[in-house]
Design a protein around this nucleic acid. Structure first.
Ligand code: SF4
Ligand code: SF4
Lengths: 139, 139
DNA sequence: GGAGAATTCCATTTGCAAGTGGTAATTACC
DNA sequence: GGTAATTACCACTTGCAAATGGAATTCTCC
């Protein structure tokens, strides 16, 4: 399971995508509409800003907005920033690789199985972007 | 990422598969060979026994063993017991479904995306069993 | 039936994610 | 320049997973 933090991040981004190019959005507005604890959401959005996913503006009329077009940011990218590894095991992670002590990879079947699982997940998450979070128009 | 607990469980099961039909295996032996904290491993193996994955024998000559043939137990099954949900979101879990408050699934794109991710993962984990953890013979 | 070997069970500590609170810094507007 | 609105930052609390400690139970073997 993704951490709560990541789930909140995704929801917030969904909201920001829906309001893309409509000016800054208040943290409090996102928090209320998406039922996210306000102060926790502050931390999350700030982290996304530091990683250039979001941009912000202080003071009256300020708020948060996407930094680039939604198509430019993959879900995998977002999850790696907020959650960390996407792989289910440390030793099959592409960006956070870490073997367990005294690893003999040639004798470890677990490794191979979770490489498969990782590739299956990445095949989905690398190919979806924030644009895929945009809500379809009402009929 | 899978929790440490689940990672330990998988490693322990790998060891038990390798010694399938060779009589009971000591917890302490598994802990030492697989570098797992002894007391923590106790809890994990006990939980697996309560869920009929493992069997145990007390006293001298006792220990843990698989309850059935390795082919009978899928990795998905093991993970659900030790870790809980396999899906990345509560609302796309088959066995642990839980929506967030005020869910409007028709308007939520996140949901659909993670259904895809879930199916990709399950396609791997449901079709692998403990038998796939058996080490290939040395050449 | 007693001694030793092993699992089982329960209670506690530790460490980190989740969540909260308060203050500083920045900006817009009059 | 003063005031209100907003993000930014820092420090703390809470809750749960991870890990540990110790005593109870069951079994084997002599
Ligand atoms: S022993 Fe197996 S699971 Fe551990 S790091 Fe090596 S390959 Fe990965
Ligand atoms: S709002 Fe979306 S993410 Fe939340 S429970 Fe409903 S479908 Fe799932």
């Amino acid at each position: 399971m993704l951490s709560k933090k990541t789930q909140y991040a995704l929801k917030a981004l969904e909201y920001l995508v829906a309001h893309y190019n409509q000016g800054p959005v208040l943290i409090s507005e996102i928090a209320e509409k998406k039922h996210i604890p306000l102060k926790f959401l502050e931390n999350i959005l700030l982290e996304l800003r530091h990683h250039d996913i979001l941009d912000s503006k202080k003071g009256k009329g300020g708020g948060y907005m996407l930094r680039t077009e939604p198509e430019k940011t993959s879900l995998a990218n977002v999850i790696r920033i907020v959650e960390g590894p996407i792989a289910m095991l440390p030793c099959v992670s592409l960006y956070f690789y870490q073997p367990c002590e005294s690893c003999d990879q040639t004798q470890c079947r677990i490794h191979d199985l979770f490489i498969e699982a990782r590739d299956a997940i990445l095949n989905v998450l690398e190919n979806k972007t924030l644009a895929d979070l945009r809500q379809t128009a009402l009929v």
